[in-house]
């Protein structure tokens, strides 16, 4: 299927009427997001019940880490969107550059998050240090692991783009990977205020 060239008219029709990426993949993304959303709701309830403990723990977080990571992840999302657009318009080399740039920004995100984790571990704050810290490590760790997976997807898309750019199946796969990356954007956009700002 990878080698099947797409007819221009049907490709245009597909672009006008379908989701980006694979429909089954969207079900997976929705399930992932809803799972996290359930934890956000539980977090909100727990925060309400233990407000003083949560506020004291949140005071130990440095929002500047999260702010920089927000900017990095949003910029990587922009790069992915540009990469997908370049792919659709036939610019496979440009697509590769954009997608690999997004993957590189993902690595920057991981490095910053790793530095933040190291700082917290240095202060003796672990998963068992309290309710807030359980949620902090669980939610950000869940996101962290997904970012690692997403980087792998992006590297694969970026390296494959020049060879497979004419195959519809590859376009679907690339869009699916992009949707996964944007889901990570969405989750972080929620995590940033929930854990660090409010």
């Amino acid at each position: 299927m990878d080698s099947a060239l797409e007819d221009g008219e049907s490709f245009k029709r597909r672009r006008d009427w379908s989701l980006p990426g694979d429909a089954a993949w969207w079900m997976f993304l929705t399930a992932e997001f809803l799972t996290l959303f359930a934890f956000f709701v539980v977090y909100a309830f727990m925060r309400r019940a233990n407000l003083e403990e949560f506020q004291a723990a949140q005071a130990l977080l440095d929002p500047r880490f999260a702010l920089v990571n927000s900017l990095v992840l949003i910029t990587s999302g922009y790069c992915v969107a540009r990469g997908v657009r370049a792919l659709r318009c036939g610019g496979s080399e440009r697509s590769r550059s954009w997608v690999l740039a997004a993957a590189a920004l993902g690595v920057v995100f991981i490095a910053i998050k790793g530095a933040e984790y190291a700082e917290k571990f240095g202060l003796g704050l672990t998963l068992s240090s309290g309710t807030f810290w359980f949620f902090y490590y669980f939610l950000t760790g869940f996101h962290f692991l997904h970012v690692l997976l997403g980087i792998g997807f992006l590297v694969w898309v970026g390296l494959s783009a020049p060879k497979k750019s004419n195959a519809l199946a590859f376009h679907v796969q690339a869009e699916s990977c992009a949707a996964f990356w944007h889901m990570l954007d969405l989750v972080w956009i929620l995590l940033f205020p929930l854990l660090y700002l409010l």
Partner: peptide
């Protein structure tokens, strides 16, 4: 992010 980055405006 939903509407533009994912290009859902179709």
């Amino acid at each position: 992010v939903l509407a533009v980055f994912m290009e859902l405006g179709h």
